[in-house]
């Protein structure tokens, strides 16, 4: 049976992890490779590296990081953040990334999805969508949720699927950082209307939130950052509890 995936997300700036991490056993808390290795050993199913640096050196630094991660890590990982061209993606995949995630660049230029899928295949193209509710309507936002667009979540998600994306990473800006659970209603609707996997993001605080997002939200994978970084939830314990709840997981 296909297992539900647990996906820690690491924010990267200039090749280093930025969100505070609370691992006493880390030699270097800012080293993404070391952190990735720990998560991999703990049973993470996949990793996401989100690059938030904006320097000119960015591309090279990120490519170097991808190479170092691929060298060490034997589980799949996705790289996102500021990717806006076929060339950007080519460099990351050549260096060993399994998937890339695009966000703003896809909203600004939707044809980019088709171009990437044609060149690299659906399997490695993840489209990340950030959205929040405005007057009862889910509206797609850019720049980490700061800038609203004209696009509505479900229409945009459908278009993303039709253009060939292999997976959608949906972050609810209304839930992100609240530690109060994922946006399960919207997630379930995405799963019902689309036929590609959906990764839930935003709102993880307790184990029960993961259970709920798999059961009620019908999510295929759940992404979280701080609950893992601050060891509020251990991945091994989380998976054991999910298994007890009858959710298929890889242990």
């Amino acid at each position: 049976m296909l297992a539900k995936r647990i996906v820690p997300c690491l924010d990267i700036k200039d090749g280093r992890t930025v969100k505070g991490v609370n691992f006493v056993d880390l030699r270097d808390a800012g080293d993404p490779v070391e952190l990735a290795e720990i998560y991999s050993k703990e049973g993470a199913d996949e990793l996401v590296f989100l690059d938030i640096s904006a320097t000119e050196q960015k591309r090279k630094t990120l490519a170097d990081l991808v190479y170092r991660v691929a060298e060490k890590i034997n589980i799949p990982f996705t790289v996102g953040g500021g990717i806006s061209s076929v060339e950007d993606v080519d460099v990351l995949l050549q260096n060993g990334a399994d998937k890339v995630s695009i966000n703003s660049s896809a909203v600004k230029n939707p044809k980019l999805i088709n171009d990437l899928v044609a060149k690299f295949g659906s399997q490695c193209i993840v489209v990340a969508i950030d959205a929040k509710q405005i007057e009862g309507e889910w509206i797609v936002h850019l720049v980490g949720g700061k800038v609203p667009t004209e696009r509505k979540l479900f229409e945009w998600a459908k278009e993303v699927e039709e253009r060939g994306a292999g997976e959608i990473l949906f972050t609810s800006m209304d839930h992100d950082g609240t530690k109060d659970g994922f946006a399960n209603e919207a997630l379930a609707k995405l799963s019902q209307e689309l036929n590609i996997p959906i990764i839930a993001s935003g709102g993880a605080g307790k184990v029960v939130h993961f259970t709920d997002t798999f059961k009620e939200g019908k999510a295929d994978a759940a992404l979280a950052a701080s609950v893992f970084h601050f060891k509020e939830i251990g991945i091994g314990d989380l998976k054991k509890e999910l298994q007890e709840e009858g959710i298929p997981v890889r242990i």
Partner: peptide, 13 residues
């Protein structure tokens, strides 16, 4: 088939 999400992505047995 369309009974399942395609692509299959993840860990199976």
């Amino acid at each position: 088939s369309k009974n399942v999400k395609v692509p299959q992505i993840g860990w199976n047995q």
